[in-house]
Design a protein around this nucleic acid. Structure first.
Length: 411
RNA sequence: GCGUCGGUGGCAGAGUGGUCAAAUGCAAUUGGCUGUAAACCAAUCGGUCUUGUACCUACGGGGGUUCAAAUCCCUCCCGGCGCA
């Protein structure tokens, strides 16, 4: 399933290919997030044309809406959303965080002073809504309240896998608890150990469910082949927990691995080194939810084969664009009369055809097309960056690219 | 011309003696966004500085009443409506 073609000397970084029922993913790769079976503001053709290889949907969201039964009836995720390439579904483990501890708290996956400050400001704000979590975590599973209608739902590892079997993506994830970056050691350890037990149950269910219930040996992806199941390493920002988790999860018979949870900004490099030093080398590793340019370099250097991240599409929708010289906010006054391209040498559809002034106008006028053009550019930027990094490993100039890019980007 | 209602910050629109540099919305300006409750969220939004329960300038113009006026009175200007 996974072939390594070339390695980075003295590092875990490598170039490879991952074969899925819906196509080959050339790794390292950036996987585009399409939570609700759509990449927000883009058609599958646009996603394909900008060079993306695969799309990642979300189990929890698709279960609530439209319901996994409908996707199954439609013939699976690929057919349902008209995407011809490889697909992933996240297990819903991230929603344990985002609808739980992360709910309205202003927290993200990186723990920093800024976030803590931001959080306390938000809570003290008089217009802040009542801070109510939508999840309850138990040993057996997680009780979710629907953010749509408030109805109660219960996710267990088995339930998450069952839904993911129905959705039928090529790559599915074990149900985990993505714990809060502000969680202390004891809680992080407890959550990690629970995630390990859930991993075992996810794996068992995926391998036996169809055997028992339908006589079919393996669950099917939309074109009839076996789904790959990835286990998820947790442990937060604590090195010893990360190592423990890599050992336990790495010892289970998963097709690949996700690395989830939170990191300290400085700790990503070290954490990935620890984890990927323990996980089986020959299997594919996906870094969940991380995707800023510097993170991509750090991840790839340390053996990450694929990434997914909402950042390119989310920030695009609010007018923030990636450029080789860092992010720019296209809505800023200075761009309203700037008739240059976002980037003169960018090959994306947006840069080839439109100016900053036009983009700026679309955002100010709140035109839908603004989101589309900005998402195309940002996704192209990130997808292409990862492609260039891949090529640099093949060409043996990874470090030159890294230095050159980061110097310009963070100047 | 007479009558009548009204003229408030970039716009719309509250406020009708002190708690008003003036609600709210929009616009504007600036931040933020990492497995998407996200076409979102937040801050600022008359000026000055020693950034303060500080000073100055401000609710069409001018004048007045009052300890105190966006709020009351007079007058002028402008606008809507009605009648000639």
């Amino acid at each position: 399933m996974f072939k390594i073609e070339k390695k980075l000397k003295n590092k875990f970084g490598r170039v490879g290919e991952f074969i899925t029922p819906n196509g080959i993913i050339k790794t390292p790769a950036f996987i585009v997030v399409g939570t609700k079976a759509t990449v927000k503001s883009l058609s599958p053709e646009q996603v394909n044309n900008l060079g993306a290889q695969a799309v990642l949907g979300n189990t929890y969201h698709l279960y609530l809406q439209p319901g996994d039964d409908i996707i199954k009836k439609a013939g699976g995720l690929n057919k349902f959303m008209n995407w011809n390439g490889p697909t992933f579904t996240d297990s819903g483990g991230f929603q344990v965080f985002s609808l739980g501890e992360g709910f309205s708290s202003g927290e993200n996956k990186f723990k920093s002073q800024k976030n803590i400050l931001n959080r306390s400001l938000k809570i003290s704000s008089k217009i802040q809504n009542v801070h109510t979590k939508l999840v309850k975590i138990k040993e057996d599973g997680v009780e979710f309240r629907s953010y749509i209608d408030g109805s109660k739902h219960y996710f267990t590892p088995e339930k998450s896998i069952e839904i993911q079997n129905n959705i039928g993506a090529d790559i599915i994830f074990a149900f985990d608890e993505c714990s809060s970056p502000s969680a202390e050691y004891d809680y992080q350890k407890e959550a990690m150990e629970r995630t390990h037990r859930w991993a075992k149950r996810s794996l068992y269910y995926n391998n036996h469910h169809y055997l028992k219930n339908s006589g079919v040996q393996f669950p099917s992806s939309s074109n009839g082949n076996k789904q790959a199941l990835f286990g998820i390493v947790q442990g937060g920002k604590f090195g010893d927990l990360r190592k423990k988790s890599a050992k336990v999860i790495g010892g289970m018979d998963f097709d690949g691995f996700g690395i989830g949870g939170s990191f300290s900004k400085e700790g990503l490099d070290e954490t990935l080194r620890f984890v990927n030093g323990i996980l089986p080398e020959e299997k594919i590793k996906h870094l969940l939810g991380i995707g800023e340019p510097i993170d991509l370099f750090i991840g790839i250097e340390n053996g990450i084969d694929s990434f997914d991240c909402v950042s390119p599409t989310r920030i695009a929708r609010t007018g923030m664009l990636y450029t080789k010289h860092g992010r720019i906010n296209i809505i800023k006054a200075e761009y309203s009369r700037d008739f240059s391209k976002i980037e003169d040498d960018c090959e994306c559809y947006t840069c080839k055809n439109y100016t900053k002034a036009y983009l700026s106008h679309l955002f100010r006028a709140q035109e839908m097309f603004a989101s589309t053009l900005a998402s195309i550019h940002n996704l192209y930027f990130i997808v292409n960056l990862v492609k260039n990094i891949r090529q640099s490993i093949l060409d043996k100039n990874f470090y030159e690219l890294k230095e050159k890019f980061l110097k310009k980007y963070y100047a």
